[in-house]
């Protein structure tokens, strides 16, 4: 079985997000970019399946700007076997929408026929939480989102999903689309020898035209603004004072 893992290049988790003064978006020029943390968990899970003998090959794919190559190299250094880069944007500020990404991935799924696609549940930039579900719709496959655990057994996978109120376990027919939640695993760091080796692993370069997919956005971003700030409160000196003050509110 092949496992396909879509990965996205996003602003690094630790970087302070700055909204551009003209309201046109978030400033991504000269900002540290990394693999979307949920996608790292997806890559890790795929590699573990390979190590457990349940998968033969792990393919990482990224759709975005040319620089997403670096993100793919990170996936290869972690242990993926080969990579596909679909260059769909020239400017780092141009975000390819989940629907277009899912269409491209559906075309790649058709070519590669993976038994499992493992995606991050959401990207930490647009926070849409949609690509996995949309890919499942377009391929007609089962979906298991927000995975907390994943077990592959024959032609099915059992997935415990993080849902409101607890966990829901479902069994999906393979091929299927699984999206990762935070606690599925802890991704490994790539070792230096593996980073060197990753440079020699195959990386295919494609464009949306190769797959006949139109990536024109359906959503127009009218404005990006700083979130409303809360007015500074007061510091109190004791529990009594806290109770007294809070009582005016809600306690």
């Amino acid at each position: 079985m092949k496992v396909l893992v879509p990965v996205k290049r996003v602003i690094d988790y630790n970087v302070k997000v700055r909204v551009k003064a003209d309201g046109s978006g978030v400033d991504l020029a000269n900002v540290k970019m990394s693999m979307n943390p949920f996608d790292e968990i997806a890559v890790e899970e795929a590699i573990r399946l390979k190590e457990a003998g349940k998968a033969e090959e792990v393919i990482v794919v990224s759709i975005g700007v040319k620089q997403a190559q670096e993100t793919l190299r990170t996936g290869l250094a972690m242990g993926a076997d080969r990579a596909i880069l679909v260059t769909a944007a020239d400017d780092v500020h141009e975000d390819i929408e989940p629907l277009a990404v899912a269409k491209l991935l559906a075309a790649i799924v058709k070519e590669e026929e993976p038994g499992l696609v493992i995606c991050g549940k959401q990207a930490i930039d647009n926070d849409l939480n949609a690509t996995g579900q949309m890919l499942a719709a377009l391929t007609g496959y089962a979906q298991a989102t927000n995975a907390n655990s994943l077990e592959v057994d024959g032609d099915a996978a059992t997935v415990a999903r993080e849902v409101d109120g607890g966990l829901q376990t479902i069994k999906v027919k393979l091929p299927a689309i699984v999206t990762t939640d935070l606690r599925l695993n802890e991704p490994r760091y790539a070792s230096l020898p593996n980073i060197m080796k990753a440079k020699k692993k195959p990386l295919d370069e494609k464009t949306p035209a190769d797959y006949g997919v139109d990536v024109a956005p359906r959503l127009e971003i009218v404005k990006t603004a700083e979130p409303a700030e809360r007015a500074a409160g007061i510091m109190v000196g004791s529990v009594d004072e806290l109770v007294e003050n809070s009582r005016k509110g809600a306690i």
């Binding site: 929408e97 926070d127 849409l128 959503l219 009218v222 979130p227």
Partner: peptide
């Protein structure tokens, strides 16, 4: 396309939603 976690309605086509973990608010049409 889907619009998730919408926090405010501007008009029938336009909505506000948080992005970047709530560090920015986006108005999308």
């Amino acid at each position: 396309m889907v619009l998730t976690d919408v926090t405010s309605v501007v008009d029938a086509d336009t909505f506000e939603r948080p992005v970047y973990a709530g560090n920015a608010m986006q108005t999308v049409k």
